[in-house]
């Protein structure tokens, strides 16, 4: 399988205008209940992932409450590639933890196929920002872990482990421990570990942040290929707006604390896309303008007005 094999996303349409805010967010502020646009639901009319009025506050050390997420409403249709961008500390990781079922929301519901999430489930696998590789296991054993927990037979586990290690180009490192790898290699192990569980929904928290440009491009291609071949639903958090435009069917932009969806952008560029391509750059610039507003807000909050000038 060549990584660059031309493939057409089922979501790519022939719109002239390569980028536009999603209709729903255009007509209503993001805090109101989102009217689900048709293209974001699957054939049965049920979105794969659905967030209904999700809010979450953390208790801070001085005893007050910090509102990290404020009334998030989001639908992700089966097979959709959604990217989330937002300033640091806006609650992106928190949101992925909620969807993974690792912590409960203060209010609101997370629904998968219209069923409320009550905890973790192997239909949703999260690649943590901190990776969370197990240091007491080898690379191969890390990749195998989820399958072992599911009770998959040893033979199949071996086969799949080898397959996914090859995919991330780490076959020779199967018996290494994670501390013996570079940061980028560790990210690839985490990617292989998540893919090996073959979840319906893949939650990725800045998974390519520590990669060199070549490896990242390669993994973009691979991820896009896996996604289009397997029909997985992907929610992908990144700092890099270009990366979001390169990969996403849709980009959701979060506001700085409390995290809200400021705006959604539908990316109608044909696939496969190239990070360096001018249309990607153009779309990214538009989103970046909105993101910069939020980043400035966050800087103001942290350093006062002087810093922003």
């Amino acid at each position: 399988m060549t990584p660059n094999a031309a493939h057409q996303s089922p979501l790519t349409s022939d719109h002239r205008c390569p980028i536009r805010p999603a209709p729903a967010t255009r007509v209503r502020p993001s805090t109101a209940t989102l009217v689900v646009p048709l293209r974001h639901v699957n054939r049965n009319g049920i979105p794969k992932v659905s967030l209904d009025g999700i809010s979450l506050s953390y208790k801070t050390n001085d005893g007050s409450q910090l509102l990290a997420l404020d009334n998030i409403n989001l639908r992700v249709k089966a097979g959709e590639f959604l990217c989330i961008v937002g300033p640091s500390g806006c609650g992106k990781s928190t949101l992925l933890h909620l969807i993974a079922g690792l912590q409960p929301a203060t209010s609101g519901k997370v629904l998968i196929d219209d069923k409320q999430v009550e905890g973790t489930g192997t239909d949703r696998i999260l690649i943590f920002q901190e990776l969370g590789l197990f240091p007491w296991l080898t690379v191969g054993q890390n990749v195998e872990f989820g399958m072992k927990m599911k009770g998959i037979s040893k033979a199949e586990r071996n086969e799949r482990t080898d397959y996914y290690l090859r995919l991330v180009h780490l076959t020779q490192f199967k018996d290494s421990y994670s501390h013996q790898l570079s940061g980028g290699m560790r990210q690839r192990v985490a990617l292989a570990r998540a893919l090996a569980s073959e979840p319906d929904v893949l939650l990725m928290d800045e998974p390519f942040a520590a990669l060199d440009a070549q490896t990242r491009d390669l993994l973009h291609d691979e991820l896009e290929r896996i996604w289009s071949e397997t029909g997985r639903t992907i929610i992908f958090v990144t700092h890099n707006v270009r990366e979001a435009v390169r990969l996403g069917d849709r980009v959701a932009l979060f506001t700085f604390r409390p995290g809200r969806i400021k705006r959604e952008f539908v990316i109608d560029l044909p696939r496969p896309r190239q990070l360096e391509h001018v249309t990607v750059a153009k779309s990214a610039r538009e989103i970046l303008d909105h993101l910069r507003e939020e980043i400035n807000k966050s800087l103001e909050e942290q350093y006062g007005h002087e810093a922003v000038r």
Binding site: L102, E130, G132
Partner: peptide
């Protein structure tokens, strides 16, 4: 805490 979370995430209970 990440190890416990990663374990639960991968289906260990």
């Amino acid at each position: 805490k990440i190890y416990g979370m990663a374990g639960r995430n991968l289906g260990a209970h």
